[in-house]
Design a protein around this nucleic acid. Structure first.
Ligand code: DTP
Ligand code: MG
Length: 388
DNA sequence: ACGCGCGTGAGAC
DNA sequence: TCATGTCTCACGCGCGT
């Protein structure tokens, strides 16, 4: 019962008519865990859990990712480490490895650099994921796109030793969903005339941007599949999700997405730590200063300065509270970040009186960047990452 | 009406 | 039965212009 699938554009072939793009999405398989296998091949065949230890107790923390052997048993991103330990307690040789983000970042950069050369335009979405616009070099031909995609996949395996999954489609949204449907070690093309069939029977929650909260609301309104969402009255959706998000969801359900593949630049940096014990007051020099230092160094290394400095407090109930302050000038100074963050913490925890805010985790954020040196074509603000 | 600053919430990785 | 860390975007509100 779906209707159309793309939106403007009729033309075929030739240059870059608005929606004859071909977009490739590449996503490395169980990335952090696969990186660990790469430097320690004896791990292969065993369950691997990449852990973010918070330092609260020796085992407290969460799982960053797990390889597919562990995943089959129920270990996945975000669950408590102890829960993963319980799941794997009878598995011989299960490996719990502390996250080594720098190492993964290094491998990622090497691969991303080689990918960038293979695209008309390139967008790195995360440490293990990127979009390549390959419209021109495939001449808008999916046969050519298939050849290019398979070349890339094998090149990464041969040159870098990593398995990845590639999805190809008429836009970022579809290419990403194609990749999601094919992992691990997969390759999938969804052509424009296949988009509707591809999407229609998937649960709405599989749509990028529809998380647990939105899915629940949709389900309560009888919307179970992406196909349901695609034909649900637009005004009702606007009522439920607002006049922008409602229609947006509907367009996404139709596989429509005009958002260009373009380089991204960071807009904020933050650092959050978990306190050894919950606290409503703490030693700024011990807790806040090192955070300010890290952020200052990062700003200086990347050549950004920020006008907005904020703090983040996560309560024992895991609610997030934030306070922020915008300066009339941009800064990267450690002292300044430290001093403003401290002020905001004082304020938030009520220097005197006030109800007592209790923190489980605290953090600092810098945002509102101005570039120190040059600036490249940063552009507009817009709706979601995936649609016009 | 618009842009900005601020706080919150949702989502992705 | 414990719940990381980092980032992006949307929304709603108040405010000044
Ligand atoms: N909730 C999280 N907390 C911390 N780190 C995360 C989280 N989710 C993902 N990551 C990190 C670890 C992942 O290896 C990496 C890439 O994420 P993602 O592509 O979603 O999973 P993955 O690469 O491990 O598995 P796969 O892509 O095969 O499903 O980002
Ligand atoms: Mg991945």
């Amino acid at each position: 019962m779906l209707k159309r699938e793309t939106q403007p554009s009729r033309n075929s072939l030739g240059a870059s008519s608005p929606e004859q793009r071909i977009v490739l999405c590449i996503d490395f398989d169980y990335f952090f865990a696969q990186c660990e296998e790469l430097r320690n091949p004896s791990l292969k065949g065993k369950p691997i859990v990449i852990c973010v230890y918070s330092g609260r107790t020796p085992t407290s923390g969460a799982v960053s990712t797990a390889n597919y052997i562990a995943r089959k048993l129920g270990v996945k991103s975000g669950i408590p480490i102890v829960q993963a330990m319980k799941i794997l307690k009878d598995q011989k040789g299960a490996a719990f490895i502390p996250m080594d983000h720098e190492y993964y970042e290094t491998l990622s950069e090497e691969i991303m650099d080689s990918l960038r050369e293979r695209a008309d335009s390139f967008e790195q979405v995360s440490v293990d994921e990127a979009f390549l616009d390959i419209t021109a070099r495939s001449h808008s031909d999916y046969g050519n796109a298939e050849i290019i995609g398979k070349e890339i996949k094998e090149e990464i395996r041969e040159r870098h030793g990593l398995a990845c999954t590639i999805g190809i489609g008429p836009n970022k949204l579809v290419s990403k969903m194609a990749a999601d449907s094919a992992k691990p070690d997969g390759f999938r093309i969804v052509r424009p005339n296949e988009v509707e069939q591809f999407l229609k029977d998937l649960p709405v929650g599989k749509l990028i941007g529809i998380g647990p909260k939105t899915e629940k609301t949709l389900n309560q309104n009888g919307i179970k599949t992406i196909g349901d969402l695609a034909v649900f009255p637009e005004d009702k959706l606007s009522e439920l999700f607002g006049k922008n998000l409602g229609p947006l969801f509907r367009r996404m359900a139709r596989g429509e997405d005009n958002y260009p593949v373009r380089e991204r630049f960071p807009k904020q940096f933050s650092k959050i730590i978990t306190l050894k014990e919950n606290a409503s007051t703490f030693n700024f020099r011990d807790d806040v200063e090192p955070i300010a230092k890290v952020l200052s160094v990062k700003l200086n290394q990347t050549g950004f300065k920020s006008k907005t400095i904020g703090i983040i407090v996560i309560t024992p109930e895991l609610k997030t509270k934030t306070r922020s302050k915008t300066l009339s000038y941009p800064t990267s100074s450690e002292e300044e970040i430290f001093s403003i963050a401290s002020q905001l913490f004082q304020e938030a925890f009520g220097s005197q009186g006030e109800e007592t805010l209790i923190a489980r985790r605290i953090g600092v954020r810098v945002a509102n960047f101005e570039e120190k040196t040059k600036r490249v074509g940063d552009e507009t603000e817009s709706l979601s990452k995936y649609i016009l």
